[in-house]
Structures are given as C-alpha cells and as structure tokens.
C-alpha cells in the first residue's frame, strides 16, 4: 500500500471555496513525491495556508480527491485522521503554541499526546530546543517569547516526532536572515534524511538558497516548476 515511489500527497481535481464568492482552489492537481523538498509560493491570500490545512485534514475540499501516504482521505474515520496527522509535522503561520504550557511542554506536546512518558523524550526535546537556540527559554511560556523565538518553538514542535512530511507555513517570517538560513538548512538536512518538506513562503531570498521544486499558487491554480529535472 505504501511503496517507496508512492506520492506522500496527491491532489486530484481539488476544489475549495469558503462560501459562494470566495473560491480558493479550482481544480488543483499535483503530487508531492516521497523525500521531496518544495517551496509553496503565491501572493498573500492565494490559498497557501488553506492548502496546508487540506493536507492536515483540518479542512475538507468541496470536490476532488486527496490522498495522503497512499490513503484516500475522502471518508476516513477519526482514528485514521489521528494516525495520518502523526506522520506529519506542521509549523503554523500563527504558531498556535499553547500559552499555558512552557516552551518545553509545547515542543514535547506531539510526543505526549501519543501517550509517551516524559522520561522517554526529555533529552530529545532539550537537544532540539538547544539546536533551535531556545535552550535558555525552556521554562518560559509563549507570551514571554519574541516573535522569532515563538517561531522556533513552533518549528521544534513540528519536528520533534520525526514526521515523514513537514509542512511549514512561513517558517522564517519572523527571524533575521542568519537565523532564517540556519532554519532553512535544518529543513534541508531533515530532507536529506528522508523527510518530505513543504515550505510556504513569501520570501524570494529563500528560493535562491536551495535548488528545489516550486509549487506556485495563483488564481486558484497550482503550477509545478521543477528545476531539478
């Protein structure tokens, strides 16, 4: 069912609208090959975040078929939704950190909701927090973090469970160029180890740094540009 050549995400004639006069995707079809790395670009309001929400199954398309890791997600139950989400890591554009938990607890959340005991993941979480430069802020809660620090915490949370697919929505929007480069290389590194990566971004400078596939979303359509071919 899940052989190595199967697309991790496949959209087939997908339509999405928020009400009668706000059509976001019009007959969109594309595939994300396994282990691929791609940027998702498009003007503000083009539908990048909406597309990511479709993949994350927090939104359902109005028409069309979406397959994740070979599973048709058209009519799956809550348990399968949970199982598929555990194979993905998402950096939300608005972070969606939980303000009542510490940075450490936020990052550990995907492991904790899988029922893992703290002793089994504590060292991993601390190491990743160190890596993204938050080692000194583990006990602080998100409201006490700067925009860039929140962003890094959100990235760490997306990576901690070693997902097969990472969806990052503007992951470098709030950090300075050196940190942006560092984070981008973290994603590249994860991709080398086999993780498929989608980075939604406005930032053209990122595109110049990595040779990667490029999904361009505009006017409800997705164009795939692949310089690696």
């Amino acid at each position: 069912m899940n052989d190595a050549s199967e697309a991790v995400v496949a959209f087939e004639d997908v339509w999405l609208r928020y009400g009668p006069d706000r059509e976001v995707l019009r007959s969109v079809s594309f595939e994300l090959p396994p282990h691929s790395f791609q940027f998702l670009t498009g003007p503000s309001g083009a539908g990048k975040t909406s597309l990511i929400r479709l993949v994350l199954l927090s939104l359902a398309p109005n028409a069309g078929r979406i397959r994740l890791f070979g599973h048709d997600v058209g009519a799956i139950g809550a348990e399968s939704v949970t199982a598929l989400r555990r194979r993905m890591g998402v950096v939300f554009q608005d972070f969606r950190l939980l303000d009542h938990l510490s940075t450490y607890e936020n990052v550990a959340l995907p492991l904790r909701v899988q029922g893992r005991g703290e002793a089994s993941y504590r060292a991993e979480v601390m190491e990743l927090l160190d890596w993204v430069g938050l080692g000194h802020r583990v006990g602080d809660r998100p409201p006490a973090l700067s925009g860039g620090e929140k962003q890094r915490a959100a990235i760490a949370r997306a990576l901690i469970a070693r997902p097969e697919l990472i969806l990052a929505d503007e992951p470098t929007g709030n950090v300075d160029p050196p940190m942006a480069r560092r984070l981008l290389h973290l994603f590249v590194e994860l991709n080398r180890m086999g993780t498929a990566v989608v980075i939604a971004t406005h930032d053209p400078s990122l595109l110049d740094q990595v040779e990667a596939r490029h999904l361009r979303l505009e006017g409800g359509q997705v164009d795939v540009l692949d310089p690696t071919r």
């Binding site: 809550a78 989400r85 998402v90 959340l109 909701v113």
Partner: peptide, 10 residues
C-alpha cells in the same frame, strides 16, 4: 484543536 492537530486522538 491544537491537541488534535499535533496528533491527539479523541
């Protein structure tokens, strides 16, 4: 919602 999105079951 966040709990669900990061993989919590019902």
């Amino acid at each position: 919602e966040v709990l669900h999105l990061v993989g919590a079951s019902e």
